[in-house]
Amino acid sequence: MDCKLSITAGARDGKSYMKDVFVSAPFRVVPVGQTKSDGAAYLMVMSSSPGILDGDHYDLNIQVEQNARLQLQSQSYQRLFNMERGASQLMQVNLADGAAFSYVPHPVVPHENSTFKSVTKVALGDACEFLMSEIITCGRKYHGEVFKYSHFQNLIEVRHRQKLILKDNVLLLPELMPLAAIGLLEGFTHQGTLIYVNTGNQPVDELIECIYEMMQGEQEVQFGISKIRHDGFVLRCLGHGGEQLYDRFQRIQNLIWEESKVSLA
């Protein structure tokens, strides 16, 4: 099934809002920022489907207009069900000058024999902020489905003024890769990636140090932070629980979002 979602966030009088939205089944978009007073738009993407099914193709399009700020939220864990043909997703994010976008979704749970390929293309204007994360679990651990999925891939490309500045490709093939071995997951069952980029010449060294200290106290988690050539970083984490990584990614999102709000004041 082809599933489409398109969101445009605009800004007016210093406040961001959902300017336009189009969804097809099973999607629904709900504003969730009624208690927020920072002028940003907070939207939750909901779904009537229990998860991504065999043959599904998700087409997501996010437009954030000039000076608008959008934080997107997910409803729950994303399940990838047993498949024969596989499923795919294309997500396109376009930020105009001065825009900000943040998305920290719940972890992905690939069931046995699932195949999923995702491509995310991000286009940034000047003075933009972009944050996105992903957490991949080993599958339904308590159903005996540890690394029983067939194929998982997520490719992210970030461009600034049409120039490629970041490319990250996560490819997991349990039948071909000894995921528990040294050099791969090394006994861990969950992998998380958080990407942050800004095109406003805002140095990230102090932010990286702050996140390092925040993550250092985590039990049974290994992590590393790589500063990219432009102002941004990639945080990679290994752990044993999706909720633990999700909670830490939310804390990092809140830290960056609050600092962004202060800098705009």
Rank of each mutant, 00 (worst) to 15 (best):
C3N: 11
K4D: 07
K19W: 13
D20N: 12
D20M: 04
A25V: 03
V29W: 05
P31T: 01
T35Q: 08
Y42G: 00
S48G: 10
S49T: 08
P50G: 11
P50W: 03
D54L: 05
G55A: 08
H57P: 03
D59S: 15
E65D: 15
Q66Y: 09
R69W: 12
L70G: 13
L70N: 07
Q78Y: 01
M91R: 13
V104A: 03
H106C: 02
H106M: 00
P107G: 00
V108K: 04
P110F: 05
E112P: 06
F116A: 03
L124R: 04
G125C: 09
S133C: 01
T137F: 05
F147G: 02
F152M: 06
I156S: 10
I156H: 05
R159V: 07
R159W: 09
L166I: 01
L171S: 14
L173P: 00
E175A: 12
L176K: 10
A180N: 12
A180C: 05
G187H: 04
F188H: 13
Q191M: 14
T193F: 02
L194P: 05
L194V: 02
I195C: 06
N198V: 03
T199A: 06
E206W: 09
L207V: 09
I225R: 11
H230R: 05
V234I: 15
G239F: 02
Q244E: 12
D247M: 13
W257Y: 05
